[in-house]
Design a protein around this nucleic acid. Structure first.
Lengths: 231, 231
DNA sequence: CGCGCTTGTTTTTTCGAAATTTTTTTAGTT
DNA sequence: AACTAAAAAAATTTCGAAAAAACAAGCGCG
């Protein structure tokens, strides 16, 4: 069941990436080779390659010849990330709405449907579900994937993932979530109708999520505000 | 003369990066380990780590277990890059003009002066000079570095470098350049005066450079248009 | 003649031991 | 006790040989 052209290093990179984004490897945690070798069952050099990749993605930071550390978190970083996301997301959405064709619209409806179905099946707890997070990501990607700009899409995905780490962190420390199912629906409708307001809706969606995360989990990563600014 | 905390891998990464940006390693070129081992005088694993970093920066692309290739170039990629740059550059400039203080203004004047002095010393050929390119980059950075957004600055620099590769490519294939010295001066003045028009000026500056590159060197990389879109 | 298979060659990828560097511990001096 | 310096321990970084995979050439067969 191994995808063609997949190398051990790229596999470790993916797994490690997942572990960081899902906070199984905690922000600020020191990454010691001996431990990682056990955990992922590969050699030094292979690990090192994976870490180099992650470091270029700013999910881990490399400290000279003093090893690697999981990228720290801070309110300032989350806010910075949020502003950058708003800028990019608005632009790729705007372009998508301009260029999008029938297939694009169909894909949006399809991925919304998948997300929505799982959401009703899971009830109030959907917010903590891994699979839902995947479908949620796919839905948002489908909205903007017609923008014809690989460069912007790449950066957008990058920021999306980093922000997702914060969302998941916060989800570990709360038990309920007031469902805003309608929000996604209204965003989709506005996008499909090419309403200019769609840009405002997506911006509000992003900012509200951030505010929510800070409200619930902000105190958890207030301490290392300073550390994150070196990234 | 080795900077503290610099590892062999990061050194190779930097050198290789320079070689790619300066087109000493040509776009699309296959990167064979045996050859690189000679060129940079390091071992397999160390090379591999540098390549992994570069690949995450999309300066090289990795082809499954078929090795690495210098990222190809294309008109489409350059145009995509240019649009993304305009978006980011306008934003960081806007923010810088809002937050910038006295020190920021002083730094701008200083780096403009350095660039301008070298420019007059070099005459019409300044455009081909490595050192001028560095000072030019520093000047543009100084304009925007007060924006208080590490995330945006990071992405901006990334795009700036990638676009610079195109500029340098084109400079290899022309002998003269109509100097537009006044342009930088007028941008600087507008920025320091907090004129909203500065955003338009910077946008035009970026787009004109791109048009110029395409006009002079576009035909050189028209062939691999398709290849670049996989990046 | 084209197509698939086997074999030999080249290139990439992985491994773990050895070298280097940082961190911790210990001992000595003021 | 506080502060340095030296030695030991621990961790990271590098290396090149060995394993694995891709590629190329030759061979047999329908």
């Amino acid at each position: 069941m191994k995808t063609k052209g997949e190398t051990r290093a790229s596999d470790v990179h993916t797994r490690m990436r997942d572990d960081i984004l899902s906070c199984e490897l905690k922000p600020g945690e020191k990454l010691r080779f001996e431990g990682l070798k056990d955990r992922y069952d590969v050699s030094f050099s292979t690990l090192r390659e994976a870490l180099a990749r992650l470091s270029a993605e700013s999910l881990v930071v490399s400290e000279g010849q003093r090893g690697f550390v999981v990228a720290p978190v801070s309110v300032a970083d989350l806010e910075d990330l949020t502003n950058a996301r708003v800028l990019l997301e608005r632009e790729v959405l705007r372009l998508s709405m301009e260029y999008g064709d029938d297939k694009w619209e169909a894909d949006i409806l399809a991925s919304y449907h998948r997300m929505d179905r799982l959401q009703s099946r899971l009830g109030a707890h959907y917010y903590f579900d891994e699979e839902w997070a995947r479908l949620h990501g796919a839905f948002h990607r489908s909205l903007v994937c017609a923008c014809k700009s690989p460069v912007l899409l790449d950066m957008r995905l990058h920021l999306f993932d980093r922000a997702n780490r914060y969302r998941r962190m916060s989800s570990q420390f709360r038990t309920k979530w007031r469902p805003k199912d309608v929000e996604h629906k209204s965003i989709m409708d506005a996008v499909l109708d090419r309403e200019p307001d769609a840009l405002k809706l997506i911006e509000r969606h992003i900012r509200e999520t951030t505010e929510n995360v800070i409200e619930f989990a902000g105190h958890l990563f207030l301490q290392d505000e300073a550390a994150a600014s070196v990234a």
